[in-house]
Simulated assay, not measured.
Amino acid sequence: MPSSSSTFVAGLTAAALATVGFLAFQASANAPDDPAEPRRGSAPAKAAKAPGPIASTALPDGSGAGERVVYALAADRVWLVGADGHVNRTFKVAPGSVDPLPGSYAVRSRSGAITGTDGAPVEHVVRFAEADGVTIGFSAALDGSPPERDPRVQTGGIRQSVADGDAMWAFATIGRPVEVVR
């Protein structure tokens, strides 16, 4: 019968799609925060930092209250914090050569897709500060690359993975507080 074979094929297709979806979910749930974890260059703007990264992924003390993005300079880590103070997501980032000063900011502009200062196509650009005439914001390189290190070019792009960029884009709308801590 043609209808029973069509039903059988449809059932197999649905089972295959469910299996692929489950395996993709498992792979993303077990992926490291930042598989590339690039080595950092030493730009003059970085010299004033406290030595060494923060060992914990716990939300830093003194990082504000309420719904906000928290960016820890020494740890190169971001937290997306809900209104109840619960951390919705945390992840490693790769900063550009210019850091924002510690303090309170707010998301002031966003771009869906642009070319980064280093020439890489980036998406989900969330800008929140300016330092030394350089605009600073989070972005995700479409190819997953860390920012290029060119000592002649000052960059304020803070790179995150594409998946983390998707989460940042959904969370960090215009006006969302951004707390920068050492």
Rank of each mutant, 00 (worst) to 15 (best):
P121C: 04
E179G: 10
I158W: 00
A83W: 05
R110K: 02
A94L: 06
S3N: 15
F25L: 12
P177T: 12
A58M: 06
A167F: 13
G133V: 04
A83C: 07
V20M: 09
I136H: 01
P147L: 00
P146T: 01
E130Y: 01
N88I: 06
S139E: 03
V93K: 04
H86V: 13
P2F: 12
A129R: 08
A47I: 08
I114F: 12
D33S: 09
P60L: 05
P44D: 13
G11N: 08
R108L: 09
F138D: 07
P53G: 02
P51S: 04
V125Y: 00
R77A: 00
F128A: 06
G137W: 05
G144S: 04
T13S: 08
H124E: 06
A120C: 06
T173M: 12
G119S: 11
P44W: 02
R159V: 01
G137C: 10
V126C: 06
A113F: 13
T173V: 15
R152A: 10
R176W: 07
T19S: 05
G119Y: 02
G157S: 13
M1Q: 05
D164T: 10
R89C: 08
S56R: 00
D143K: 12
I174M: 11
E148W: 03
R68I: 00
T90Q: 07
P146Q: 00
L59S: 04
S139A: 05
A16I: 11
A24K: 12
N88V: 08
P32G: 12
G175H: 01
D33E: 12
A131T: 07
V162N: 13
E130Q: 15
P102C: 06
A18C: 03
V107Q: 03
V20Q: 12
A129M: 05
V178Q: 13
G64E: 03
H86R: 15
F171E: 06
L17S: 11
